[in-house]
Design a protein around this nucleic acid. Structure first.
Lengths: 155, 155
DNA sequence: TTTCTAAAGTCAATATAGTTGACATGAGAA
DNA sequence: TTCTCATGTCAACTATATTGACTTTAGAAA
């Protein structure tokens, strides 16, 4: 667990701006950290981290997802998925069972405990977003979304 | 170098939204990737990566910075800084010399080649931001900044 | 001159999050 | 029975970080 978040945060405005968009560029970096900071601390207390949260997040929104589809969505190799996924199964935050008709695939679901943890972690992140959106009102929030969509689709 | 960026990008909208702010939450994730994708590809061609870029970015905006201050701003340990910093010195993208009066510290500066690479990499990121801001106009851009500042300062 | 201290550098061990390649297993389909 | 798909696992590797324990460099103080 890096201790960098706080130290780095202290220096958010300490660099000379060489270009027009340098401030925006830095905000993208510190924005990600700001949004995930509390969620990561919460997860760390449970012995979990970002990869576990990503798995829980996706499975929460795609109950009965097969492992292959999960891999596609996460964009990682099955070997990389292996450890965090098995931890979640061992801890009974996820269940896996063969599909009734498609016996080849295994379907993943959150247990109640898994749902609770997914919600708590995501709530930390949504809380930060909520506070920021409230400060700029509905039109500002819509503008933020529009900007982020354009940026996100750059690939 | 992970191959995940493209695959993950394809699935940006594929999850059911359980909460109001889920879309925003996902946009933060994919926004970071969208902004850094081309810059990372450019850096990879040169055998460099994000840590190198961060060093170049900071030194460009703080010429004659001491190594200790650089560590503080980056928020990493000196052992973690060691490898990428030495690579940049070996490649002559950075110079390091003892300060005239403060002989204890070493002052870092970009060479012309270092400046060029820093600018190219950051230009890729700024280009993505520019395009997105242009689509929403000045007020939208200001709203985006306001939202990100609130989020970034959450620590 | 010796000693103290600050800044930087280095060595080793460890963690985390990923990669590729090769191979094994489980279970339906031909 | 064999083929194939989905999954699981083993091993080796890479990149980016950590902590701890030193050493080196060079000015400051005794």
């Amino acid at each position: 667990m890096p201790k960098t978040s706080q130290a780095a945060g202290l220096h958010r405005a300490s660099l000379k701006k060489l270009h027009d968009l340098d401030a925006a560029l830095e905000l993208m970096y510190y924005g990600w950290r700001g949004m995930t900071l509390e969620a990561d601390e919460y997860l760390a207390k449970l012995g979990l981290s970002r990869p576990h949260h990503r798995i829980l997040y996706v499975v929460a929104r795609r109950p009965d997802i097969a492992i292959g589809s999960l891999l596609e969505i996460l964009g990682i190799s099955k070997q990389a998925l292996n450890r965090p996924l098995n931890l979640l199964l061992e801890r009974k935050l996820l269940t896996s069972k063969r599909s009734p008709e498609q016996h080849r695939s295994k379907l993943l679901r959150l247990t109640d405990a898994g749902q609770r943890i997914e919600k708590n972690a995501s709530d930390h992140e949504r809380k930060v977003l909520r506070a920021a959106f409230d400060r700029v009102g509905e039109p500002g929030a819509a503008a933020w979304m529009a900007v982020m969509e354009t940026i996100a689709d750059n690939n």
